[in-house]
Amino acid sequence: MLRYVLKRILMFIPIILGVTIFVFTLLYFTPGDPAQVILGSDATEEELEACREELGLNDSYLERFARYCSDVFLHGNLGESYINGRSISEEVASRMPKTFTVALVSVILAVCIGMPLGIISATNQYTWKDNTAIVLALLGVSMPGFWVGLMLSLVFALKLGLLPPSGWGGIEYLILPCVSIALSGAGSIARQTRSSMLEVIRQDYITTARAKGQTERKVIYVHALRNALIPIVTQVGTMLGIQLSGAIVAESIFSIPGIGTYMVSGIKNRDYPVVQGSVLVVAIIFSIVMLLVDVAYAFVDPRIKAQYAAPKKRTAKEA
């Protein structure tokens, strides 16, 4: 077990390094002269040159990459914004919790809506309940989250005045953004739950459970759901990434001062270090979450556990 966790953590290092190379290379190839952005259009050539020298823009790709890595990993420094010169790390650190709260709440919301919908759908296959659930899930998957956000804020905030249209504060500020992101997630979880439940319900051990007189409730929730859970959990894990990105867009609709608004303002101002810094941080956090999900599986699923209990046998699947 420990072997597996260690292996998984070791695999995490090249991934982070790879993501850093990717983000840095994007930044490197971004068109435009940072010195020009910083100094404005009326700077002289000497001033621009001095600024480039100071920023180290004249160094080679490798030198700059080495410096970026040592800044990011040894000093936790993501650089400064071109526009206002403020430290990106500080900004990101103060904004990240908000984005993360929105993403996490919406994942929980999506699971709470999606799983029951999928279970109802699967246990009542081909009835009106199933059809309604299928249509609802399809709609959820098909609606673009940012548009749902706009529509919800139009109805519940601007017309009915029930909830605040924008800003950050108590729970009431969380409802609209989270619901708008959660709907698509709920749709895909419902679809996944339905298909994996249907698959499990056909298995022999479900027939056995029914045959021995187990109550239907217990058969569904204890025997079937537990076994159907693995693909669903996988989906919830990867969904966090989607919800994080969804949160980024929802933030700009509901003016939440999180990473998303920061990134969007970076895009609008051509302030590339801001964009790249936020992408890097979100990617790293996402990878950490995926790592935790993977390790959590190993504890939940005895089949994965068994693979590592006897370390001599390695199956093709795992490689």
């Binding site: 930044l27 971004t30 990434g241 990105s245 980024i248 990134m263 979100v282 990617a283």
Partner: peptide, 24 residues
């Protein structure tokens, strides 16, 4: 697969935002 692992470490939408910001 290792290269793809790196790609997948960035959520797809975020990745398209990053690439799109670079390309214009």
């Amino acid at each position: 697969m290792r290269v793809l692992d790196v790609f997948q470490a960035v959520p797809a939408i975020l990745m398209s935002i990053a690439i799109s910001a670079t390309l214009g």
